[in-house]
Write a protein that binds this DNA or RNA. Structure first.
Length: 497
DNA sequence: ATGTGC
């Protein structure tokens, strides 16, 4: 319950080795460290961190490592708690944390999923070459900004009637496509879980949550959410890139957003309910923010049903945003097939999934972590069976993003999970103290990046210096054997809150 | 992350 310390991390003051962790942390593989159960008495399993020494040094600057150790105390946790190379402090759980719990004692913890349920990333790819459209791109970006509301508390053009909300929450993207016509049947094939989790029950989503979400489909939100028009700068795997339909010079769109106020309210409701239940049962947690309940309990089941509904809402949100992008692209580039933004894939990075691992059915919490199934996994679309599941790692604003594909080895290393981004290095406040938003805007423009963001303060908080080096983070994921790099994408235009 | 906070 202690307040997160506000670090003014500067590289000069970083210790050479993470002394707090020596000698209990040891390297056990390429880019893989383990913190044994000897570190703290209450650990049920070891903690593992995918990192190099530089990233490890950055991690010990905040509370994320102790938070990961706290995760190892959760009832029913199996194997180890896993930290990704972009790990940083979060609510209870670190962002960039993975944990699998097993029935019957296994718990589900809303803090292990995050406030923005099914925050995730969707990549769209056109057949357009950047070369051929570069002159109009600033105008396209401006049109996108007019069509897509960004920022805190904004609402969209779509307002769902209660019956429609009910169907979005239970049926997800297939409802938007089949009934509302906001996409094509092929779209659904290229979404994690086909854009719908089965376990949703709208009776478990509070009226307040549904009210908050009713006009938020097709909105981006604030914080680190964004929509970026990009160019495939470099193909890094000449076999995998064509399998995903990617080529150098190609125009792509990356969408990063989640379940907006609806998911936030679902999390808030569940944390409160579980906190009360813990008090009632006399259960003491190491951190109250790790409020949880056995998945088999009424509280656990109710939260799971509400989380599934919120996840479906988030996929629907990214689907409506895709529809908006398609409308704008059609206006500027016409009806030809090359102008059609096809969905490469859509992945969640704040979610819990019931998955078999090592012959056991686990509730896998991924918070700021992306599922990364290897080739041949039955959940992958047929076109990606050979190559593996696409994983998208956005960098910070103005820097590169990566496309990777999951490897089979990820199952044993990280319950088939990869990182989700560059990872924050500085707090928002610290970043704002060091960066002048208007100057950053000018610098991005000088780089040829069109910036559609009304708030200079928001820009300063999301400045590249507030984030870890995405190239390093991705290299570590590859070195660990979790996923392999396929392509490097660079920004051309960015929409932010 | 969030109609930002018990």
């Amino acid at each position: 319950m202690s307040e997160p310390p506000c670090h003014e991390a500067s590289m000069e003051t970083l210790p050479e080795v993470p002394q707090q962790l020596e000698p209990l942390i040891r390297q056990i593989g390429p880019a893989l460290y383990e913190l044994g159960q000897g570190f703290r008495e209450d650990m049920r399993v070891p903690a593992r961190i995918v990192a190099d020494s530089e990233l490890l040094q950055q991690m010990v600057q905040d509370r994320s490592v102790p938070q990961l150790v706290n995760v190892t105390t959760l009832p029913g946790i199996q194997g180890f708690a896993i930290g990704m190379p972009d790990m940083h402090e979060g609510y209870g759980f670190p962002v960039g944390g993975v944990a699998g719990t097993a029935l019957p004692d296994g718990v589900i913890s809303p803090g292990g999923i995050g406030f923005d349920i099914n925050c995730g990333v969707r990549l769209l790819a056109t057949g357009l070459r950047h070369e051929d459209v570069k002159e109009v791109l600033p105008k396209v970006a401006h049109d996108l900004a007019r069509s897509i509301p960004t920022g805190f508390g904004r609402h969209g053009r779509l307002s769902l009637a209660p019956e429609q909300m009910d169907r979005v929450l239970t049926e997800g993207v297939p409802y938007l496509v089949d009934v509302l016509g906001l996409g094509t049947p092929e779209d659904v094939d290229y979404l994690e879980a086909r854009g719908c989790l089965d376990g949703a029950d709208t009776a478990k989503v509070s009226v307040r949550a549904q009210e908050r979400g009713h006009d938020q489909l097709g909105t981006l939100g604030g914080g680190n959410h964004f929509l970026e028009v990009q160019r495939v700068e470099r193909v890094l795997d000449s076999e995998a890139a064509p399998a995903l339909g990617l080529f150098e010079g190609q125009l792509t769109v990356l969408i990063h957003t989640g379940s907006r106020g609806l998911g936030h309210q679902v999390c808030t409701d569940a944390v409160r309910t579980m906190d009360r239940a813990l008090a009632r049962e006399g259960i003491q947690l190491v951190d109250r923010q790790l409020a949880c309940a056995p998945l088999s309990s009424a509280e656990g089941q109710d939260y799971f049903a509400a989380m599934c509904a919120a996840a479906n809402f988030a996929w629907a949100n990214r689907q409506v945003l895709t529809y908006r992008v398609r409308e704008v692209f059609r206006r500027w580039f016409g009806d030809r097939s090359a102008a059609w933004p096809r969905i490469v894939y859509d992945v969640a990075h704040n979610i819990a999934k019931l998955e078999p691992h090592g012959g056991q059915r686990l509730c896998v919490h991924r918070k700021g972590a992306t599922r990364a199934f290897g080739p041949g996994h039955p959940e992958l679309p047929a076109a990606y069976h050979q190559v593996g599941q696409p994983v998208f790692i956005p960098g910070s604003m103005g820097t590169a993003s990566f496309v990777l594909v999951g490897k089979e080895a990820a199952e044993a290393i990280s319950l088939s999970s990869a990182c989700h981004g560059a990872g924050r290095r500085l707090s928002r406040a610290a970043s704002k103290r060091q960066v002048v938003g208007s100057e950053l805007r000018a610098a991005l423009n000088r780089q040829g990046i069109a910036v559609e963001c009304p708030s200079n303060a928001e820009l300063a908080e999301e400045a590249p210096l507030a984030y870890k080096d995405v190239d390093r983070v991705v290299d570590v994921v590859e070195a660990a054997g979790i996923a392999r790099k396929v392509a490097r994408l660079v920004p051309l235009a960015v929409l932010k809150g």
